[in-house]
């Protein structure tokens, strides 16, 4: 259902700071809207994101209903060594979406 996409360089120099961009498809239902019958539509959003590198936290974000549909995040990471980034999104229903990306330090 929710498809994550990540943009990240394939390689970096040791200690280099790289830019990472992430997108995940999601309606981000704010809980503020009403349906055609006038009943409130319950909130259903991605509420957290975390990026780790070789198991260590790089960047995290707690999201609230004002975050736009298909949440976009851009941040940076210092790359000390070759390894693997993991990206994890969680929503209000407890669903977890994740993806991984390897990077090589020359």
């Amino acid at each position: 259902m929710s498809k994550p996409r990540v943009k990240i360089p394939k390689s970096a120099a040791a200690g280099e700071i790289i830019t990472i961009k992430t997108l995940i498809t999601h309606k981000m239902e704010s809980g503020q809207r009403k349906d055609k019958q006038g009943n409130p539509i319950p909130r259903m959003i991605i509420n957290s994101f975390e990026c780790t590198f070789n198991g260590e936290r790089v960047f995290g974000c707690d999201m609230e209903p004002a975050i736009s549909a298909n949440p976009y995040l851009q941040f940076t990471a210092r790359v000390p060594e070759s390894g693997e980034f993991e990206f994890v999104w969680k929503d209000d229903e407890g669903s977890v979406f994740s993806t991984k990306k390897k990077i090589k330090v020359a």
């Binding site: 700071i17 790289i18 704010s30 503020q32 590198f53 260590e56 936290r57 790089v58 960047f59 995290g60 974000c61 707690d62 999201m63 609230e64 209903p65 004002a66 975050i67 736009s68 949440p71 976009y72 995040l73 851009q74 941040f75 940076t76 990471a77 210092r78 000390p80």
Partner: peptide, 23 residues
């Protein structure tokens, strides 16, 4: 509701700069 987001940086973040999009 005023809340938008909370960013959490770490020493591994490199910079302390991040972007998103809001309503």
């Amino acid at each position: 509701e005023p809340g938008v987001a909370t960013f959490h940086f770490t020493p591994l973040s490199g910079t302390q700069e991040a972007s998103t999009r809001m309503r």
